[in-house]
Structures are given as structure tokens and as C-alpha cells.
């Protein structure tokens, strides 16, 4: 026995939660000891303690964290029919085709693309030679801003298009292994 005044049932029930959480034993070991002694002699309080220590009760006592601000938007996005995205995935091919045709026309067709490829190879060789100290730095060819804007627009639209196609791709299944 602790030698102190025994606790009343009402007081024990107030302390039960912190006792079950082990907070009482940490903050006030003497009081925890008194609760323990009371529980040993009081069947009613023991039943309350048992209930308080059970898993469903403990779960009910847990406070749920506040939901993310974007939760509603994320859920709505996840359950939105994919038809809109499906349609956008294919309609974006039209502006891409227009831009690609314009760029091809501007570069004089496949010949222009070929000259760009050979120019890249030549400039890379020149760059390597310059790095090795055996040549001068290659010069960048002049380019029209209109062509640059068209190339950047095509790059941006294609990247956006790709992101839509990635969203449409089915997710990976959980890995299963044969026994």
C-alpha cells in the first residue's frame, strides 16, 4: 500500500485515460500507483479500465488529422470521367501537326531537317576540336525568332500532351511473385 488516501471511483475514472496512455505513470508515478491499487480492489472501475484499454475504444479516442486542402479537388479529379482527357489526348494532335508542318515548311522540308542534323554533327566535331585545342569555336547559325517561337510552342504543347497521355496510362499492378 502507498499509505495515502485511497482515490474515489469518480476520481479514478477521470484519471483512467491518462493512466491507460501511460502518461500518468510518467508524470505522477504516485498517483498512478494509487489508481493501480484502486483497480485491484474495485470491480466496477476495473471493467471501465478494461474497456478503456480495448482497441476499438482506443481507436475511437484517436483524433483524426485534418484533411488536406486539396482533398476534395483530388477526389473530384480522380472520379471525373476520363472522357474529357481522352478527347483532349487526341485533339492536341491537330495543333501539333499544324506547328510541325509549319516548321517543316519553314526549314524547306526534310532537306532542312537533314541540314540541321549534319550541322549538329559538324558543330559537335568543331566543339570537340575546340575542347582539344585544335580548332576554333563553331559559330551558332542565325535563326528567325518566328521559328524559335514555333519550336518552343511545339515543345510545350507536346510536353503537355505527353503529361495527359501519362495520366491516361493504367497504373502498375502490385507485384506478384509465383511461389
Amino acid at each position: 500500500m502507498s499509505g495515502q488516501t485511497p482515490l474515489a471511483c469518480a476520481r479514478v475514472r477521470v484519471l483512467l485515460e491518462s493512466y491507460v496512455d501511460q502518461d500518468l505513470a510518467r508524470d505522477d508515478p504516485q498517483r498512478a500507483q494509487q489508481v493501480r491499487e484502486h483497480l485491484a480492489g474495485c470491480a466496477d472501475c476495473r471493467r471501465q479500465h478494461h474497456q478503456a484499454a480495448s482497441v476499438p475504444f482506443r481507436l475511437k479516442a484517436l483524433t483524426s488529422p485534418p484533411p488536406r486542402e486539396s482533398l476534395t479537388a483530388d477526389v473530384m479529379k480522380a472520379i471525373t470521367p476520363a472522357r474529357t482527357r481522352d478527347r483532349r489526348a487526341w485533339t492536341l494532335l491537330a495543333p501539333e501537326a499544324v506547328l510541325a508542318s509549319f516548321i517543316l515548311w519553314y526549314l524547306s522540308g526534310l532537306d532542312g531537317l537533314g541540314s540541321i542534323a549534319s550541322g549538329i554533327a559538324g558543330d559537335l566535331q568543331g566543339l570537340a576540336g575546340w575542347g582539344a585545342g585544335s580548332g576554333s569555336l563553331p559559330s551558332v547559325p542565325p535563326v528567325d525568332v518566328l521559328l524559335l517561337l514555333a519550336l518552343i510552342a511545339l515543345t510545350a504543347i507536346a510536353a503537355y500532351h505527353l503529361s495527359i497521355l501519362i495520366e491516361l496510362t493504367p497504373k502498375a499492378l502490385p507485384t506478384r511473385r509465383r511461389a
Binding site: A100, D123, P141, L148, T155, A158
Partner: peptide, 8 residues
């Protein structure tokens, strides 16, 4: 498009 941009 990206390679053509990088070429310049």
C-alpha cells in the same frame, strides 16, 4: 523540336 532548338 527540342533537338532543333538545341542546334541554335
Amino acid at each position: 523540336a527540342a533537338v532543333t532548338l538545341l542546334r541554335f
